[in-house]
């Protein structure tokens, strides 16, 4: 009888698939790998691995402490590898992002609003980063987060470096 082994990737062990072309351009498939992107990123760079109009998926290498960030809409952080602590504070009225801000932006200082709580998430765990909150990631060891959000001023686009081109 078959013993099934579920294969996940990690920063230290990942194997990329790929686009095998019959009659098309591989760049149309925007093919990359989250662990490969995180392995070549600096801590807390927000590198887009998916973009659907204004919406993005960002691959984030979590390592040490992130800046405090603030958001006017819900975001969702899925830990793909490692362990990440998320600390949340409610934004005070004067800390709210300017109207129309999409994605998250730096807060620039310790949050003034009340502490909302914290989450410690490991591989496969999804954390709500609620609207009108400040959050900070902390990872003792390098970890990988996939962030569901909207493109913002700090979203980085490196398609030519991360995607299969031929």
């Amino acid at each position: 009888m078959t013993t099934y082994v579920t294969r996940f990737g990690s920063l230290n062990q990942y194997e990329k698939g790929g686009v095998e072309i019959i009659d098309d351009d591989p760049k149309r498939y925007t093919f990359s790998n989250i662990f490969d992107v995180a392995a070549h990123s600096r801590p807390y760079e927000k590198v887009a691995v998916g973009k659907n109009r204004q919406y993005v998926l960002e691959a984030i290498r979590a390592e040490g402490d992130s800046d405090w960030r603030r958001t006017a809409h819900d975001e969702f952080a899925l830990v793909m590898d490692g362990e990440v602590e998320v600390v949340l504070h409610r934004l005070s009225p004067d800390e709210e992002p300017p109207e129309g801000t999409q994605g998250s932006i730096q807060l620039g200082h310790e949050p003034a609003g009340p502490r909302m709580g914290r989450v410690v998430a490991r591989r496969g765990h999804m954390t709500l980063l609620p609207a009108h909150a400040a959050y900070r990631f902390r990872a003792e060891k390098p970890a990988v987060v996939l962030l569901q959000t909207i493109e913002g001023a700090d979203t980085l686009y490196r398609w030519g470096e991360i995607c299969q081109t031929h």
């Binding site: 294969r7 194997e15 990329k16 790929g18 009659d23 093919f31 989250i34 490969d36 793909m80």
Partner: peptide, 10 residues
Amino acid sequence: TRVVMKPGDV
């Protein structure tokens, strides 16, 4: 095309 996707691929 034929697209082969492994863990972490997007």
